[in-house]
């Protein structure tokens, strides 16, 4: 991994976690859960919209550390017609603004009336942001990123972290989920983790077969490969833990299992960071 890429690891993971939270909130609303009171909690960690804004805000601040000349940052919007980075920054601004509108309206009584529309607006702007982020990395001159895996990994990061945040909020009894909604989220989480596991295995196989030019093979041995094995182990344990918690309690998460729930959240979070670290570390480009 090149110097300062850690800032991109944090920026992309947190932004995607933010989008994931909003997608889950919209999904829950669509499933008929009463999410109105949840988004009326203002500047509270119990409020998923506030959490999503906080994640996006922290991610934005950290992204400045990646820049060599942060004072020139406003220029990043100069090339909206050609650059996916410019579009991503604009999408991030629109997404954050739409979340702010939802949160501010949540303080009043207006949210109940317009909540479904606002959440759809938030989700669409979040998906647009996710799309722009994916397009930045899908470049023909960077073979390891120029694949379906980039999109799959970004989307699965968003969904996994969004789902887990809700399960955690539910565990802390900040969000009331009925058995049906809780069961749905847990099953969905297991499915996404399994897909992520299989996608990572297929992608690693593809990386192993790549011609890395005169750099020589770097993706099938050494620290890179050990980190990949660590991530696969963490993913497998995460799937088993989620299944165990869900099957044991019948409706994950059961109160009293909060330690397990926090452990699961931490495990998946670390796994996502390791996955993103591997993503950036796999960089090589064609040519000289």
């Amino acid at each position: 991994m090149r110097n300062k890429d850690w800032t991109l690891v944090i920026f992309t993971t947190l932004t995607q976690a933010s989008v994931g939270i909003i997608l889950c909130l919209t999904l829950l609303n669509y499933l008929g859960a009463d999410v109105g009171p949840i988004v009326q909690q203002g500047l509270s960690l119990k409020n998923p919209v506030f959490l999503a804004i906080a994640f996006a805000g922290i991610a934005t601040l950290i992204s400045f550390l990646h820049l060599g000349s942060p004072s020139n940052a406003p220029n990043a919007l100069n090339n909206l017609s050609g650059s996916w980075i410019s579009r991503e920054i604009l999408a991030l601004a629109i997404y954050s603004l739409s979340l702010l509108v939802t949160m501010v309206l949540g303080w009043g009584d207006w949210t109940h009336r317009y909540l479904a529309h606002l959440l759809v607006l938030n989700a669409i702007s979040g998906l647009a942001l996710l799309w722009m982020m994916i397009r930045i990395y899908v470049m023909p001159t960077i073979p390891p990123w120029n694949s379906w895996y980039t999109g799959a990994s970004f989307v699965s990061t968003a969904v996994c972290l969004g789902l887990l945040t809700f399960l955690l909020l539910s565990q802390a009894e900040f969000v009331g989920l009925d058995d049906r909604a809780g069961g749905f989220l847990a099953t969905f989480l297991i499915a996404v983790l399994v897909i992520e596991l299989l996608a990572a295995l297929f992608h690693q196989r593809r990386l192993n077969q790549m011609d890395t030019g005169f750099d020589g093979p770097i993706l099938e041995r050494g620290i890179f490969y050990r980190l990949f094995l660590l991530r696969m182990t963490m993913l497998t344990v995460s799937v088993l833990m989620t299944a165990f918690l869900f099957l044991v309690s019948g409706s994950f998460p059961e109160s009293g299992q909060y330690l397990w729930a926090y452990a699961l959240f931490f495990l998946v979070l670390v796994q996502e960071f390791v996955g993103r670290l591997l993503f950036y570390s796999s960089y090589f480009r064609i040519g000289v």
Partner: peptide, 22 residues
Amino acid sequence: DLCIGCKYCAWVCPYGAPQFNP
């Protein structure tokens, strides 16, 4: 004067031409 130093040009150029001046 316009560059923000995001290094994206160095990522994508297949000739390794743009280089970051720390």
